[in-house]
Design a protein around this nucleic acid. Structure first.
Length: 154
DNA sequence: GCCAACGTTGGC
DNA sequence: GCCAACGTTGGC
């Protein structure tokens, strides 16, 4: 079992959307970055836990937790010419982009702010706080998860 | 809305 | 394979 952090813009899809349909699994699709794709395709598996991180919004930070219910499989939106994330260079024989399915686990009573995350002594290697902080899917170590989870719960 | 820091593209 | 130009991300 591994830990991850997924970024999302809550105006489009956020922890409240996940929470509103707790019985349903939600496809985490539309990821079009190769490094993130590799995580989705090769490393993210059923049972992994995920921090849901809200970006580009008023309260930037970790908003809650989800769980992976289906590991990496081809993101079919890449084959649909009508879809926003259509990729004409991809084909079902040789899919370029992958997704996973997640389900809601928990919404924190308050978003753990990015400023707090940055101030935690044990959080120095997390992708969020390092220079290249644009990755939309990143690994979280066990100790980082514990620290962040405790901080989020207050 | 600004802008720094990235990733991607395409000419050569 | 280099690298400039371009587009995107994302905090502020």
């Amino acid at each position: 079992m591994a830990y991850w952090l997924f970024k999302t813009e809550p105006d489009a899809f956020g922890i409240d959307d996940l929470m509103s349909r707790p019985e349903q699994t939600e496809p985490w699709d539309g990821v079009r970055n190769y490094q993130a794709r590799n995580f989705l395709r090769d490393l993210i598996t059923k049972g992994d836990k995920v921090f849901i991180y809200h970006s580009s919004c008023k309260h930037v930070g970790i908003a809650g937790v989800a769980e992976v219910v289906v590991g990496g499989y081809p993101d079919t939106t890449q084959f649909d010419p009508e879809a926003k994330y259509y990729d004409p260079k991809s084909s079902p024989d040789n899919p370029r982009w992958y997704r996973v399915d997640v389900k809601f686990v928990e919404k924190f009573s308050q978003v753990l702010p990015l400023s707090t995350i940055k101030s935690l002594p044990g959080i120095t290697e997390l992708g969020l706080v390092k220079k290249g902080h644009r990755l939309s899917i990143m690994p979280v170590t066990d100790s980082e998860w514990d620290l962040l989870y405790k901080a989020a719960k207050g």
